[in-house]
Structure formats: structure tokens, C-alpha cells
């Protein structure tokens, strides 16, 4: 259970998140959408322990995330805007390094498995400096999944991916979700949001303006209209 209780985050004199609350149960998949600069990535950074909230508290399985509880971070898999990968190293070396830091067992085996799953196993021994953007994004996804977190925070994971990789990623996320892993997804691609998630939050100017479960029957257009109405403030 990941709980954020009345989080407010102020940087400088700018209020980035106001009174943000969310509880995420195992196996739940929640999308966070909203315009650029709404505070979505900031919310993820707070949940991953990269920033401290100005007020409010973040609880993971009932324990507060602070610097001393760095072992709790093993539970969280954070995919940010950047890939966090080392460009001089090969995909396998990158995975091996993060696997060791996260104390993953059978790193080699799992690493190869994931490289196959994201379609990079032919490139496993090439330094990733020469990789295209989509290939790096695929590897970044493999990096988060390798550590077997209980909570996946995916910040725009579909960026740069081709059609095939997008459906691969959706499949991988679904698989994890069925195992009871909770998913938080930030995306501007509503098609994927509807495919992957069951619940959706709309953030606008640091505030949650809507929070509801997704009706998969209704399709994309009504969803878009609903989003626009919510963001424009009716």
C-alpha cells in the first residue's frame, strides 16, 4: 500500500502540488494525466523519495519514506524522463549494475529474459551510446522491471516507442499487474491510458481535479472530451 496524505510541495515560492492525497493498493493501476507543468512528475519524484514534501506524509506499507529507510526504496521502481543508463556500457552491463544495487538474484538469467522481452537481445553486447531513443527507452523499461518492485512508477513510458514496443510494454505492465504489482502511469497518450489503467486522476495546476475509474466500453473520444472539460474548468 502506497499512501500519500495531503502532500503539498512548494519550491521557491511556487506551489507545485496542493493537498494531494492518493492511496494505491496492490494490483491497482492508476493513470495520472494532465497538462504540461501540472506537477505530475513532481508527484512521482516525491513518491520515489527524490524530494521531500513541504507538508504531508508519504507512507509505504505504513512506513514513512525518508532517507534512513532506503531499503524501502527497493519496493519502488521509478522510470523517469531520463533513462538513468550509462552510455559507455552495454545493455547487459547496465542491467547487471542496477541488479547488483537492488540485490536481485539470478541477474544474468533475468537480465537476458528481459532483454528478450523488450526485443534488445541482439544488441546485448553493444554500448548503448549508439542506441536510438526508442531502444534506450526499451532498455530503461527493462531496468525498472529487473528490480521486481511492488510499485511501478512509470513517467511517460511510451515516449519514443514504436507500435510493436508499445503493445509489448502494455503487455509487460498487464503481466506485472496480474501478479499484484501496483502501477502508476503518467501519459499523454490516452489510448494507452485506457488500455492499461482502471482508474484515472487528472492533475491541473497542482490540484487533483478529477478522480474516477475508467469505463472501458466508452472508448477514446468521450474520454478526450471529458478530459478537456475537466482541464478547462468547465
Amino acid at each position: 500500500m502506497l499512501e500519500l496524505k495531503e502532500i503539498t510541495k512548494i519550491i521557491g515560492d511556487k506551489i507545485i502540488l496542493r493537498n494531494f492525497s492518493l492511496a494505491l493498493a496492490p494490483g491497482e493501476s492508476v493513470a495520472v494525466i494532465g497538462p504540461n507543468g501540472a506537477g505530475k512528475s513532481t508527484f512521482f519524484k516525491l513518491a520515489a523519495g527524490l524530494m521531500q514534501p513541504t507538508s504531508g506524509e508519504i507512507l509505504l506499507n505504513g512506513e514513512q519514506i525518508k532517507k534512513k529507510t532506503h531499503l524501502l526504496k527497493k519496493r519502488i521502481g521509478y522510470l523517469g524522463h531520463e533513462s538513468f543508463l550509462y552510455s559507455a556500457l552495454t545493455p547487459l552491463e547496465n542491467l547487471r549494475f542496477y541488479g547488483k544495487l537492488y540485490k536481485v538474484k539470478n541477474i544474468e538469467e533475468k537480465g537476458m529474459e528481459l532483454l528478450k522481452a523488450v526485443g534488445l537481445h541482439y544488441f546485448k553486447d553493444i554500448p548503448i551510446r549508439s542506441f536510438s531513443r526508442g531502444m534506450i527507452q526499451r532498455l530503461a523499461i527493462a531496468r525498472v522491471l529487473l528490480t521486481e518492485p511492488d510499485f511501478l512508477l512509470l513517467d511517460e513510458p511510451h515516449t519514443g516507442l514504436d507500435q510493436e514496443a508499445v503493445s509489448l510494454l502494455n503487455l509487460l505492465i498487464k503481466e506485472r499487474q496480474e501478479k499484484g504489482i501496483a502501477i502508476l502511469l503518467i501519459s499523454h497518450d490516452f489510448e494507452q491510458v485506457i488500455q492499461v489503467c482502471e482508474r484515472v486522476l487528472i492533475l491541473n495546476k497542482g490540484r487533483v481535479v478529477e478522480d474516477k475509474s475508467i469505463d472501458h466500453q466508452r472508448g477514446l473520444m468521450p474520454f478526450k472530451n471529458w478530459y478537456e472539460a475537466a482541464v478547462s474548468g468547465k
Partner: peptide
């Protein structure tokens, strides 16, 4: 700082 990998280390379950 390339690819912001320091952030990767910061979110990893390791002591700073």
C-alpha cells in the same frame, strides 16, 4: 549527469 544516472543511484536502495 549524462542520462541523469545519479538520480538512478539516488532512488536505488543503497545508503548514500
Amino acid at each position: 549527469q549524462e542520462n541523469d544516472s545519479l538520480t538512478g543511484l539516488k532512488v536505488a536502495p543503497i545508503d548514500p
